[in-house]
């Protein structure tokens, strides 16, 4: 009897996953998003070039995007400095423009890195599982409306957990993935995975748009 119940639940879960995946693929997922006065953004910060790209993207967002939650790999001090520098700029802007009082809110969350460059496959799997376990409480705590990422390894577990939460109906976070400007012909590993899960998937070169038709191409977005 219990076995039947479990099988039934698994079946329902499976169907729901397929429905959500299809909806994501048709870019209809915004019908799930209620119209809200502000958008809680979770940004997954990578390292080096990834960081400077995502900082430009966050900087471009309007004053409706708050609070901002920055997720940084625990070993990455440089990115944290860059985030603080960005926030300082945003705060100055906000006081000049007399923004809503909550606009200033932001926080920094640290999670373990999921994949170092040149890490072997087995350890990658183990550390990814570890990162997934870390991502669950993180997402449950913040329940962001939008997740913005551009390809560091850490974004895959977070986005997968966010997708899972929308499957079980706990929180629909819109996943926005922007592939790095460096990727002209091929997607990064994170991109190849999240192509299927992201609600909006941006590429910055027409060659990639030709190969990945579901992607959005608006020209170069960063410099």
């Amino acid at each position: 009897m219990i076995l039947y119940i479990i099988l039934f639940l698994l079946f329902v879960f499976f169907i729901r996953t397929i429905i959500i995946l299809k909806r994501v693929q048709c870019n209809n997922s915004n019908s799930l998003v209620a119209k809200i006065p502000f958008v809680k953004v979770m940004a997954i910060i990578g390292s080096g070039g990834h960081t400077s790209e995502i900082i430009q993207l966050i900087h471009s967002l309007s004053y409706t995007y708050y609070p901002r939650i920055y997720v940084i790999a625990s070993s990455d001090k440089m990115s944290q400095d860059k985030v603080l520098e960005l926030e300082q700029k945003l705060q100055v802007h906000a006081t000049q423009q007399h923004c809503k009082e909550h606009y200033q809110e932001f926080c920094i969350e640290k999670i373990p890195r999921s994949r170092e460059v040149h890490q072997s496959w087995i350890t990658t799997v183990i550390s990814t599982i570890y990162s997934i376990l870390h991502s669950v409480p993180l997402l449950l705590r913040h329940k962001p409306d939008m997740i913005l990422c551009n390809g560091p390894g850490t974004c895959v577990p977070v986005c997968l957990v966010a997708f899972f939460l929308s499957v079980i109906g706990m929180k629909k976070s819109t996943i926005v993935y922007v592939e790095s400007i460096c990727r002209v012909q091929t997607l990064s590993l994170s991109g190849q995975i999240l192509y299927y899960f992201a609600d909006y998937f941006f590429v910055q070169w027409p060659q990639l748009k030709a190969r990945y038709t579901r992607a959005t191409y608006l020209g170069l977005l960063v410099n």
Binding site: N30, V33, K35, V39, H59, Y65, D145, V176, L221, N223
Partner: peptide, 21 residues
């Protein structure tokens, strides 16, 4: 000269899909 990209286009698109005015 390399003019770089336009993050504003991204912001506009996101505003539209998130239902932000």
């Amino acid at each position: 000269p390399f003019c770089g990209g336009e993050p504003a286009k991204f912001a506009q698109f996101i505003n539209r899909v998130m239902g932000v005015m």
